[in-house]
Design a protein around this nucleic acid. Sequence first.
DNA 1: GCGACATTGTTTTTT
DNA 2: ACAATGTCGC
Length: 746
Amino acid sequence: MAHSHQVENTSHMQNSSDDVSYLIDPLNDAQRQAVCAPPVNLLVLAGAGSGKTRVLIHRIAWLMQVERVSPHGILAVTFTNKAATEMRARLHNLVGVSGSRMWVGTFHGLAHKLLRIHWQDAGLLEGFQILDSDDQLRLLRNVMKELNLDEKQWPPKQAQWQINQYKDEGWRVQDIAVNNDRYTQVMCDIYLNYQARCEKSGLLDFAELLLRSFELLRDKPPILTHYRQRFAHILVDEFQDTNSIQYQWLRLLAGDRARCFAVGDDDQAIYGWRGAKVTNLHNFQQDFQDTQLLRLEQNYRSTATILEAANALIQNNSGRLGKHLWTTGNEGTPIGLYTAYNEYDEARFVVERIQGWAADGGHYRECAVLYRSNAQSRVLESELVQAKIPYRVYGGLRFFERQEIKDALGYLRLLANNNDDSAFERVINTPTRGIGDRSVESVREVARRGGLSLWQAASRVIVAGDMSSRAANALRRFLELILQLRQQTAQLPLHELTEHVLEHSGLRAFYKQKKGEREQMRVENLEELISATKQYQDDSFLLDGMTPLQAFLSNTALDTGEESKEISEQCVQLMTLHSAKGLEFPLVFLCGLEEKLFPHQMALQDNNGLEEERRLCYVGITRAMRQLYLTHAEVRRLHGTENYTRSSRFIQEIPAELIEPIRLRSVAVSQPVFTPPPIATSAPSAASNTFILGERVLHPKFGEGIVLAQEGQGAAQRIQVNFKGLGTKWLVLTYANLQKCENSDK
DNA sequence: GCGACATTGTTTTTT
DNA sequence: ACAATGTCGC
């Protein structure tokens, strides 16, 4: 995390509690103002590297030690488990164990906690479980199939996005204005049916956790009153990332009694695309009475050069609360700008500089290579491999999202709750046991008609006997297997239970018998799952009468499990700009600074998108402590075709005097043999019919669009255009009657 | 139920 | 280009 290098001063821990110098001495003026502020609502605009987490921690300690607030009365909210864990750990370091009664967690984790405690008031089943987005999509697919919706016309992914969007806004079906709009009608229909399925099976998706706990507080005044009286202080990290429902939840919980301490940075708001509302931060001062606004602008991370670049860049955005990062540190070295011929050349440059860094005594782990999209890691990786430099790519499949792990969890979930349809579907024929689609489909049909869970429907189908005896037998054996597993494991501790289930469900054998490295890996992961359950033996941290199994399942859904991974070893760190937020590295490369890649094509349509890209760039720049390199390639292969690129506008937005262009090495690297885009020679009309990729065009019917690709020659020449609001279409050029757009960006 | 071929759509990610 | 689905035949 950002400040893990700053070791909290714990030497004063044993001091009499009225000596709080250890709390305030390590702080600068602005930080101290925030930490020691009287109990009012406070919005702390914390720039990158300004000690935001430290302020948050010290504020909590201050509240406890000076304001004499009981930990019981404090609620601290973060977005990620990583941040919550770090906060707990640092708090522990600073003030000892007294934080155990404090509520510290993610929005989802805290909402979950509320719902476990008040499951009856929230109208939930006692053993409810959490659906991850994979499960959610699966369930939605089924619901949509029942509604006879064509997957082509109504992509389940989109329905998932839309329903989550509704929930993130705090809307139930009755809150949605349908207005005779077919799309909205269908979405509401799906929402309604999907929700009914979830209720019946005792399943909550992520957005539902937030919405449900919001509704719980809203609709049960005694409960709301209780928590309002309890939580006198609410502290929120990364406030710019809150979405509507999270904000509503906070406001409801705070009422007008609690004091809210919000820390955030509107310049680092990079999650607008998933529903985060920077306006929450902008409106904070109006919505929370007498808010005091503080700025943390002194930066302890980067050189003055890097900060100046960041400041200059972000000034191109509008509607900022405004902030100017500064440092008392060195000017540092200029920002290196390398113009590569292509992406391989770019990667070679990065590798070369990393080798140089290592040769000067630097560590690989101090180097980070950041990029806009995951696809870019490929080339970088191959060059790193060639250079025999160890690296680690962040992001990618998380432990609990792996197929084999989800299979195993499916069995465990079914043991915990027969009516968990999502789990039932997952494991009914994994490993294959002769229950094919036809059988499952008829079970679904019975479930749907009778308003039953799949488990109940399956039992009924077997009894009814209107299924081939072979299929019915297989089905019965499956139900018996689950019942048997439950019986056999009832008294076992969780890790033995898991072991037993893996063995007797046949899941382990299923993966073991397959040959291949992937399958080998899967078996190992299954073993790792068992060891992950081991810490659930003691019931010390079990919540409100949950069984260890239930607790474990909830936890796996809410915690990605990737955090435990040993931190970074001796590896170069490869990651997207998004995953780099909150981290820092002595040496940083920002790669692929090209128009349409960064800023990304998809974000170029509107100004909001562009400003978010700029903030992303700002985040990238401010990750660097000592040395920053920007790179871009003149030619880049993207989606299979080579493209001539234009350098990113963000490069131009950084003052030239901070940048040192790096000359092409004199060594004969495959020098650009500039081959101009081929001009079609066959058709005489080709010249006027040639469109440049990325060019704006006008179609008489479809309106304005952007050229994505071309193929074919002469009469067969086709062109792919992305039309505003209509998506992409292939057009035969001779019929399309396309015009070049007036204010084309070329 | 599984392997071979075709089709498709390609930002970013947490919970 | 490439991976991740979907479809078909056995």
